[in-house]
C-alpha cells in the first residue's frame, strides 16, 4: 500500500533531491572505502592479526583527511564519505533557505541562515577542541 497523505510543501522536493544525492554519494564513498580496506587488509581481518580496524588506534581526525587521501588510505575514503554525509543536511538547509528566499518568505529564509551559522560555529568550536 502506498501512502499519499498530502502534497509536499514548497521546497520539499528540492530538499529531498539534495538529501538523496548527498546520502547516496556519502554511502557510496563509505562502501568504496570499506571495499578498499578489505582488499588491503582482508587477510588480517580474517585471522585477527595486525591493527584492530575497529579499535582506538584506528581513529582519524578531520585534519588527517587530505594526507590520508594522498596516500590512498582506505580509512580516509570512508572518512570522506562520513564528511559528505555530515554535510548533506546542511546542504538541505541551504536548499530550503534558497527556495524560501525566492518565494519571498524572508522570515523562514532568515531562520535557515541562523541554522547554517550555528553549523559553522559547531565546526569552528570542534576545531579548537
Amino acid at each position: 500500500m502506498k501512502a499519499a497523505p498530502g502534497a509536499p510543501e514548497a521546497g520539499a522536493r528540492q530538499v529531498a533531491l539534495v538529501l538523496r544525492i548527498g546520502g547516496g554519494l556519502g554511502a557510496a564513498l563509505v562502501l568504496a572505502g570499506l571495499a578498499v580496506s578489505f582488499a588491503e587488509s582482508g587477510g588480517g581481518w580474517l585471522h585477527g592479526s595486525g591493527v584492530d580496524p575497529l579499535g582506538g588506534d584506528a581513529t582519524m581526525r578531520l585534519s588527517d583527511l587530505i594526507g590520508g587521501l594522498r596516500h590512498g588510505r582506505a580509512g580516509a575514503i570512508v572518512l570522506l564519505g562520513a564528511i559528505v554525509l555530515a554535510a548533506t543536511p546542511a546542504a538541505g538547509v541551504v536548499t530550503a533557505g534558497y527556495t524560501w528566499l525566492r518565494a519571498r518568505r524572508a522570515w523562514l529564509a532568515g531562520v535557515a541562515v541562523v541554522v547554517l551559522l550555528l553549523l559553522v560555529l559547531a565546526a569552528t568550536l570542534g576545531a579548537t577542541e
Binding site: A58, T59, V78, L79, A82, A86, P89, A123, L125
Partner: peptide, 28 residues
Amino acid sequence: IGVTGAASAVVYLQRGDVVPLLAGAVAL
C-alpha cells in the same frame, strides 16, 4: 535528526573520536 547530528558529527570528526571503518559499517 540529520541536522542535529551533523552539528555533533563535525565536533566528533574534528576531535578524532571517529574510527572510519566502524563508522562506515554502522552508517551503511
